[in-house]
Simulated assay, not measured.
Amino acid sequence: MNADSLKMFYSVVEEGSISKAARINFVSQPAVTRQNYQFEENYGALVSKKGLSHFIRNE
């Protein structure tokens, strides 16, 4: 886990969308998806759920 992965996860949560997070961070959508997946794997839990059109925080 590094600061970039945490920043990217935070962007996804704040923007509510992987696509928006990718756009504002100037990276590809697959790169954001990969980092989000690795973040979830490192913590052994699902930290977000894909909604109908956006990501929502998992309580």
Rank of each mutant, 00 (worst) to 15 (best):
L46W: 01
A3R: 13
S48D: 05
L52M: 07
M1D: 03
T33E: 03
Q35M: 08
E59N: 08
A31Y: 12
L52E: 11
E14G: 13
K7F: 06
E14K: 13
D4P: 05
E40W: 06
I24V: 12
D4C: 09
R23L: 13
I56Y: 07
E59M: 06
V47A: 08
F9A: 06
A45Y: 07
F39M: 03
A45V: 13
S48I: 11
G16A: 02
R23T: 14
N58S: 09
K50S: 09
E15T: 13
S11Q: 10
A3T: 15
K20H: 08
P30H: 01
A22T: 06
E15W: 00
M1W: 12
E41P: 05
A21Y: 01
M1S: 10
A3S: 08
S28T: 07
M8L: 08
T33L: 05
V12D: 12
R57M: 14
E14L: 15
E15S: 04
K20F: 06
N25I: 00
S19C: 03
V13L: 09
H54I: 11
E41L: 14
G44I: 09
F55C: 01
Y10M: 05
H54D: 15
E15P: 04
G16Y: 07
F26Y: 11
T33K: 07
N42A: 13
A22N: 04
A3L: 08
Y10I: 01
S5P: 04
L46K: 03
A45T: 02
F39Y: 11
N58T: 05
F9E: 01
N2I: 04
F26S: 11
R34L: 14
H54Q: 11
F9M: 09
S19W: 01
V47T: 11
N36C: 09
Y37F: 02
A31L: 07
V47D: 03
N42T: 12
Y43R: 06
A3K: 12
A45R: 06
I24L: 08
V47R: 07
K50I: 05
I18Q: 11
A21F: 00
K20M: 02
Q29S: 06
R34C: 08
Y10N: 02
R23K: 14
K49H: 09
D4V: 09
E59F: 14
S17K: 04
R34Y: 14
F39H: 00
G16P: 04
I24Q: 05
A31M: 10
I56T: 04
V27N: 06
S48K: 11
R23C: 14
R57W: 03
F55P: 03
F26P: 08
R57Y: 06
N42D: 15
E15C: 11
S28G: 13
E14I: 12
R57K: 10
E41M: 14
N2Q: 14
V32M: 12
K50L: 07
Q38I: 07
L52W: 03
S28E: 00
N42R: 12
S28K: 08
L6I: 13
M1P: 12
S28I: 10
S5L: 02
Y37R: 05
R23W: 13
A3C: 04
K49N: 07
I56D: 15
